[in-house]
Nucleic acid binder design. Structure first.
Length: 583
DNA sequence: TTTGGCTGTCATTAT
DNA sequence: CTATAATGACAGCCA
């Protein structure tokens, strides 16, 4: 108990600390045993003595903090309604199942479309869309064929297809030839004018859609010139199946600009995109084809911070026992959470996205490097000085009180200030005459630490204090790392969210593009079908009735003219196959 | 005076 | 088992 003889320290702070220490011991917090509960008691007593009744003021702070935490969680926990699957389902629902029975030609088109025309590999979703479109496309077919026959197409197919009556005629009709005349023009012809897309789900989000919903039908209805080129049977069939009694409910969604708008509106509504983000997306869509899959913000590149750990180095310890805090920076820097590169990376990332609050928060965690901190002007206002372990030399330049406070600039005040910069543990260590620095106490490896302890004759109180200092010091760094990790996690999650939102927007746009091209192909195929069928003549020179005959596409590119009954059977068979496969 | 952020500390659990 | 790391909770300080 030799330490009591040093109670006459000049500093009042040290007097107080010594008094506290005596009280701690008087309260029974003996230093013989390293006891957590005792340490808690001494903490409490110390607080009561030093802070007076201040604790009452902060009685409810824990609850407030909890509430804040919950709020923060609520902010970061963005909700992502599963809208994309809903899109598909609603599309499926939007396609009336009743349209199947009357439309016989659909059944004939499906094998060709699914088998040979698709240049894309969109896997399941694509297949789903295909199936959707197959039912949907025929709603546009009438218009498509009308447009086709309205065109001054070349006539390579003119009258070459006169077929024998009655029998299923197996006549090769080269689709290559057939497409020579109209195909090249088809895309030019159709793409700007007909934009029918079954994004019925999106229409629910757009109140302006219904007003346009009849534009397509009315447009093509008024220019129905099919009769000029087709015999009444074929034309009648087409009108019967997809005609006025089945108006295309999606006709109003065909406008290309509207599709993009739908995409953006989708995003805005589903994900809470702010207008700025939406416009950014729009720019992205405008400049990008939407097919670039390489994301520089790949979520897989996130957890980089964990790798930059370096073990604490004993060489950072200071030599002077009295200036015990001189090496606190190296001590903290040795924690192993170097954040330089991360800070830069995040600066770029956040700067690109405009996440200022988090950026500020994040950078405040880089205090472990004072130079870095002083280089960040926006952190200068952070004048907190809880870092009692900070080196006074480093604090001199930045945190010294204004000169007015030092006018009477006595060395005592300077000493006072330095004292205030010392952590409580450092004060305690000084009061207890601990013969080495807190830095060593905290950062030395266990072996060296024990070796150091064995070199000195230390009382139990001193040993207990040393262990406390070591425990608290390590825990302090652990807490700092923990907080930084937590911030990193939050930032990474936010970046993940942004990346996912970007991906979703891109996929949505791709979906629209695919639907668009799919629709064009279907229109082209359908018009080709009708052109070929319409040019077929029986032995009497009369056209075949679409209600009795149909064209069957073979796998080798040939086309067969077969009776309807056979075609229907085959179509049903082929329809079931993929469904069974899916199950 | 109130509030929010930062920091240190303790208790507890995980490694 | 001990030592240490990680983390939630709390308290205190400061702008």
């Amino acid at each position: 108990m030799g330490w009591e003889s040093h109670l006459t320290a000049a500093s009042a702070d040290i007097d107080l600390i010594d008094i506290l220490w005596r009280q701690d011991i008087d309260l029974g917090a003996g230093r013989e045993v390293f006891d957590y509960s005792h340490r808690q008691k001494e903490q409490d007593v110390e607080k009561e003595l030093r802070d007076g009744g201040e604790q009452d003021t902060w009685a409810g702070e824990g609850a407030e903090a909890l509430a804040r935490n919950l709020l923060v969680d609520g902010e970061t926990g963005e909700s992502f309604p599963a809208q994309f699957p809903a899109d598909i389902s609603s599309i499926t629902e939007a396609v009336p199942g009743e349209s199947e029975p009357p439309d016989l030609q659909n059944n004939l088109l499906s094998p060709l479309l699914t088998g040979t025309e698709s240049p894309f590999d969109l896997e399941q979703q694509w297949q789903d869309l295909m199936s959707i479109m197959e039912m949907q496309a025929m709603e546009v077919n009438t218009s498509a064929s009308e447009i086709l026959y309205n065109t001054p197409s070349g006539d390579p197919l003119s009258t070459n297809y006169s077929l024998a009556p009655n029998t299923p005629i197996n006549q090769n009709v080269s689709l290559h030839q057939a497409s020579l005349g109209g195909c090249g023009q088809d895309f030019l012809l159709f793409s700007p004018e007909v934009e029918s897309l079954p994004v019925a789900s999106s229409s629910t989000l757009l109140p302006l859609v219904p007003s346009n919903s009849t534009s397509l039908n009315s447009t093509f209805g008024s220019t129905n010139l099919t009769g000029l080129f087709f015999p009444p049977q074929l034309n009648g069939t087409a009108n019967d199946t997809a005609g006025p009694e089945l108006p295309d409910p999606l006709g109003g969604l065909l406008d290309e600009a509207m599709l993009d708008e739908i995409s953006l509106m989708d995003l805005a509504i589903e994900e809470g995109f702010n207008p700025v983000q939406a416009s950014q997306l729009e720019e992205e869509f405008d400049s990008d084809s939407g097919l670039s899959l390489d994301s520089s913000h790949s979520p897989s590149s996130l957890s980089s911070s964990e790798g930059s750990s370096s073990s604490s180095s004993s060489s950072s310890s200071s030599s002077s026992a009295s200036s015990s805090a001189s090496s606190s920076f190296s001590e903290e820097g040795a924690v192993g959470y170097s954040s330089d590169s991360e800070t830069l990376d995040l600066e770029e990332a956040e700067g690109a996205v405009g996440y200022q609050p988090e950026y500020s928060k994040f950078c405040r965690m880089s205090y472990q490097d004072p130079a870095q901190l002083s280089c960040l002007p926006y952190l200068e206002h952070v004048g907190h000085n809880h870092t009692y372990n900070m080196a006074p030399s480093a604090l001199d330049s930045a945190d010294l009180p204004p000169p007015s406070a030092l006018k009477k600039g006595s060395k005592e005040k300077q000493a006072d200030f330095l004292d205030k910069q010392m952590s409580r543990d450092e004060h305690r260590a000084r009061a207890m005459k601990i013969p080495f620095t807190n830095d060593k106490i905290i950062n030395l490896p266990v072996e060296e630490f024990n070796e150091l302890l064995s070199k000195y004759q230390l009382s139990e109180a001193q040993l207990s204090l040393i262990r406390d200092i070591r425990r608290r010091g390590k825990n302090k760094m652990a807490a700092q790392n923990c907080r930084k990790r937590k911030l990193d996690t939050i930032l990474n999650l936010e970046r993940d969210v942004e990346d996912l939102q970007r991906d979703k927007a891109r996929l949505l746009r791709e979906k629209v593009e695919f639907l668009r091209s799919l629709r064009q192909m279907k229109q082209k195929v359908q018009s080709l079908y009708q052109e070929v069928f319409g040019r077929l003549r029986d032995e009497n020179g009369r056209p075949y009735s679409p209600s009795q005959y149909a064209l069957q596409y073979a796998g080798d590119g040939s086309v067969l003219l077969i009776p309807r009954t056979m075609a229907d059977q085959q179509a049903r068979r082929q329809e079931r196959k993929p469904k069974d496969r899916r199950k």
